Amino acid sequence: MAFRTILGFIVPLLCSSALLAEEINLNPSHPERYTVVQGDTLWDISGKFLRNPGQWPLLWSYNNQIKNPHLIYPGDTVYFSTVNGQPRLSFSPTEASAVSPSSGPCVLSDEDIKNGRTSFALSAEGKLRPCIRESVSAKAIQLIPADAIQKYLSLPRVLGQNELNSAPYIVDLAGEHLIAGTGDKVYVRSIDQPESLTYAVYREGDTLVNPETQEVLGYEAKYVADLTLQEAGDPATLTITKASGEIRVGDRILPTNEQEVVLNYFPMPPEESIKATIIGVHDGVTQIGRYNVVVIDKGTADGLKTGHELDIYQRGKIARDPYSPVKNDEVQMPDEYAGKLMVFRPFERVSYALVMQARKDIHVLDKVQTPE
């Protein structure tokens, strides 16, 4: 669809005084060195040195050598040390790229060009030896695996009551099709004054409900396909440009807008005290684990923003006490810490979040809250 998404991952080079005053909680079993492997994320690496990987900006900020942790590549090595009581990380690039300028083949890296390298290998006659221009082809590590949330950055949508049911709908398919797919034309009621040239097909999804009050918080609209307007009118003619499923008569149409969404992930706890509940999970999983996308029953109206991290607590079970003098006595077991999640797409009253850590099995109706 006509919707461009840019994933931006920022590292503050200058932390606020409040951030600098925060105490770093080290992982007691942290390694002295770690070599980055394919598939690592910045969150993974930080978790090897920290109890709470969300403190990564604080730890990396102490280290002048690591200008940008997002430019670390598989094969690079990170070293841990303590200087004047402060934890520090030092960094060495892949051994293959660390070639001495005075021996062996002359290798000119992108970083050398950027920094204006002036020392080069000389031949026995004192002449400059030819250099090989080396470019890094490996992909730098990310804070989180972007593909885990990519499809949720613009789709699906959470709408208000009757918002989907009042939208234009497909009244017929071109040709003699019962269902339509990519490249087919469809006819849509009442697009006389188009808001956009690009539209998306949606179908009714889950109703999002507060589990305690049963109040409806929103209605999920499930994405089906992208459309391009060919001719306005009643009916209007549109062409299917991309489809993730079958398009049928009666499916609803909503406009999409050409825009960029820039998400700067800087995980931090909310300023407010948030107590929420997991009310849904995507991709059809029943037991929620790391990098699954969940829906929680709090949103921007409650103070949640992109990047806010929350602790997950496994809901304590109710156990029957056969030894109690009270007949059929039951005891509520305490909730147990189960992991962390990060909000990446907040709506007004609900939010989509990515599970970053999962120490126990996580389920719908488990609790989430501001870290203590």
Rank of each mutant, 00 (worst) to 15 (best):
I141K: 02
Q369G: 15
E125Q: 15
M1D: 13
Y313E: 08
D110K: 05
V171G: 07
Y199H: 09
L128V: 10
E32T: 15
L59V: 01
E348H: 08
D251N: 07
Q193W: 10
F49V: 05
G47V: 01
R315F: 02
G284W: 03
A358P: 13
P168G: 07
E309I: 13
F3D: 07
P211T: 13
I278Y: 03
D234K: 07
M342G: 14
N64F: 14
Q86Y: 01
L122H: 05
K305S: 15
P270A: 04
L13P: 11
R4A: 14
R117P: 06
Y187E: 06
V249S: 00
A124P: 07
F347A: 09
D40V: 03
L89H: 00
N257P: 08
G280S: 11
C106M: 12
V364N: 08
E258T: 15
R117E: 04
D361A: 06
R248F: 00
N84W: 02
N84Y: 03
V331Y: 04
E372H: 11
G104Y: 04
Y323K: 15
L229R: 10
P12C: 10
I362F: 06
V350E: 00
V83S: 11
L173A: 03
L128I: 00
Y62L: 13
T118K: 11
Q369S: 15
Y199K: 09
K305V: 14
